[in-house]
């Protein structure tokens, strides 16, 4: 074996692109071009919305993107394969569909699982996601102490909102902006995402669901991926306060 063979052996571990990969990348690229044109025209790509007390940043949803275009070479518009969208993913699995970043799919699956374990109606309430990951394991009860970590890239945030269905999912920079004077989260829950540690096919991490005076819960997760999906191996509650 020589050096090239050694690297070939390593490269064999790389994921293989799915057959529809080119179509999905093209759809995403068109969306990027559309957004860039909007920005060029002076339109605001994201919408700023006042959320209760303070200001929260609303990440643009998939609805703000361009209408689906036919793939090159398609004879009729009706033949357009829509980008795979996780509108109704199963509880424990979420597809890595190529139109969203794999990192966003991983976080979205965890958030969806935690929210559904916490309360089956939780996803119908506004879900305030901190746009910063936690600097360390999110165990502090005071949620504002948890938002000192690195900020998730905008593309990942946009994908997470898209994957979770858009409406009712809001990224906030300052968690106190969605609390009332009693530090109760106004009509929703705050989710602080712990940084995921990815080792090969496994990803581990923690997150906190925070409801102000109504309490907080710490969760840990363990996901595993194959070429197509992230799957939950275990999501469990560690502590409740």
């Amino acid at each position: 074996m020589n050096d090239h063979d050694l690297l070939e052996r390593l490269a064999a571990d790389a994921p293989a692109p799915r057959p529809e990969y080119a179509t999905q990348v093209l759809a995403r690229a068109r969306r990027a071009r559309h957004n860039r044109r909007l920005a060029g025209m002076g339109a605001v790509a994201g919408t700023l919305a006042a959320v209760a007390v303070g200001v929260a940043v609303v990440v643009p949803t998939a609805d703000s993107g361009p209408p689906p275009l036919p793939p090159p070479g398609a004879t009729t518009p009706t033949a357009t394969p829509e980008p795979t969208k996780n509108t109704e993913p199963t509880k424990n699995t979420m597809s890595i569909d190529g139109t969203h970043s794999a990192t966003a799919v991983m976080y979205a699956l965890v958030i969806k699982n935690v929210a559904s374990y916490r309360n089956s109606d939780a996803l119908r309430l506004p879900l305030y996601l901190l746009d910063r990951t936690c600097a360390k394991a999110p165990v502090a009860v005071q949620v504002e102490r948890q938002c000192s970590g690195p900020t998730l890239p905008k593309a990942v945030r946009t994908d997470i909102v898209d994957l979770l269905g858009g409406s009712g999912v809001v990224f906030v920079t300052d968690p106190t902006s969605v609390m009332d004077h009693n530090r109760t989260v106004i009509d929703g829950v705050i989710v602080a995402i712990g940084p995921a540690r990815v080792e090969g096919e496994n990803a581990y991490g923690r997150m906190t669901v925070y409801r102000g005076l109504l309490g907080a819960e710490g969760w840990s997760y363990w996901l595993r991926r194959d070429s197509e999906n992230w799957t939950v191996v275990n999501v469990g509650s560690n502590w409740i306060s």
Binding site: L7, L10, A11, D13, A14, P15, V25, L26, R28, A29, A32, R33, R36, I96, G98, S101, A102, T103, M106, A155, V198, G200, E201, A203, R225
Partner: peptide, 24 residues
């Protein structure tokens, strides 16, 4: 992308980002 990032998920993100940049 996989050899450069040594991570399957990161490799997919890297290539997707690169292809979108190239498309533009």
């Amino acid at each position: 992308a996989y050899l450069l990032s040594a991570d399957r998920a990161a490799a997919e993100d890297v290539l997707q980002t690169a292809l979108v940049r190239a498309y533009l």
